[in-house]
């Protein structure tokens, strides 16, 4: 049973990578790429929100920091592509660390508000700074070649994005099942009890916040080379909220839910384009309805029905 699952999973992951890449259809590749980037973001925010019980509205800002850093270091300064991605992730993590340190000492929603201030403040920097190219941003970016393989075609680059998403997914599973990960879940359930049993709450919270910001930074760097254009419009509060909606729609309790949420939101958003202003009404309503009726997201439907099937069968 377990073997069959593993095989099926691997086959599915391979299919999700290969089918769009070989489709030869620019639109499918584009949407699949956006979904892969969304999945990385949603997995990152999912760990923070679903697992550590904290909320960040600055994920788009971390993503932007990663994007600009990667472009400035690789395209403009000629640093190795992967090193520039890592540098972007590191800078994003640093920003998170600086904001997380004071606010994660406080109980409740302070991180949410502080990160919202951070998001808007950093957006302002993106718009006004010289190095970011101001509101026009930076264009003329060309996708890199890595290990001698050119990733210039969107299909080839999509394979890189999908592999990165798989890597981020695996990292999330590792974090969640690690000792600090389990401790964080304990913190989420009961902060006082967790501190009594000797969990260093603040250290764990700050670490997880920093790590998830680094993942967002990595996703941002990858995004910059997907679109081959960076500008502040791509890194604003709307994107932070879109990622949040992926997490809650898919399900905040598992990385899997985040991935499903990312795929669904990316595709549905494409379908809603032509609805005009109404799409935002739909957007607001589905957030409310999910919070009210499906607090653990769409994966909870699978879970429940799967359990029912099992129970009926046994």
């Amino acid at each position: 049973m377990a073997h069959r699952n593993t095989t099926l999973t691997l086959a599915a992951v391979a299919a999700a990578i290969v089918i769009p890449a070989l489709s030869g259809n620019g639109y499918v590749i584009q949407v699949a790429s956006l979904a892969a980037i969304g999945a990385m973001m949603a997995v990152s925010l999912g760990i923070l929100y679903g697992h550590a019980g904290q909320l960040s509205f600055a994920h788009a800002a971390f993503y932007g920091i990663g994007a600009y850093t990667a472009v400035v270091l690789h395209t403009q300064r000629g640093l190795d592509f992967f090193l520039s991605l890592l540098a972007g992730a590191a800078l994003a993590g640093l920003a998170a660390f600086v904001v997380g340190l004071p606010t994660l000492r406080l109980r409740g929603n302070y991180l949410a508000i502080a990160t919202m201030a951070l998001q808007l403040g950093i957006s302002e920097v993106f718009v006004n700074a010289k190095i970011t190219g101001g509101s026009v941003g930076i264009f003329g970016i060309v996708r890199p070649a890595v290990f001698g393989i050119s990733l210039e075609s969107p299909a080839a680059y999509y394979v890189l994005l999908a592999l990165a998403a798989v890597l981020v997914f695996a990292l999330a599973q590792f974090i969640v099942h690690s000792r600090p990960g389990r401790a964080l879940a304990a913190v989420r359930e009961d902060e006082t009890a967790a501190s009594v049993i000797g969990v260093d709450i603040i250290r764990y919270k700050v670490s997880i916040f920093t790590i998830t910001a680094m993942i967002a930074g990595l996703a941002g760097g990858l995004f910059a080379y997907q679109l081959e254009y960076v500008s502040p419009e791509s890194f604003n509060l709307d994107w932070s909220i879109a990622v949040l909606s992926m997490v809650i729609i898919g399900g905040k309790r598992s990385a899997l839910g985040a991935v499903i949420g990312a795929v669904i939101v990316t595709i549905v958003t494409q379908l809603l384009f032509s609805m005009g202003e109404l799409q935002f009404l739909v957007y607001g309503l589905w957030i409310i309805l999910i919070m009210l009726f499906l607090p653990d997201g769409l994966v909870s439907i699978w879970r429940t029905s799967y359990r029912k099937v099992r129970e009926a069968g046994s």
Binding site: A2, L8, T9, A12, A15, A16, S254, L256, V263, Y306
Partner: peptide
């Protein structure tokens, strides 16, 4: 594991 399989189906 089961969910991952479902994900596979959904994505595909």
């Amino acid at each position: 594991a089961t969910l991952r399989r479902h994900l596979a189906v959904v994505t595909a």
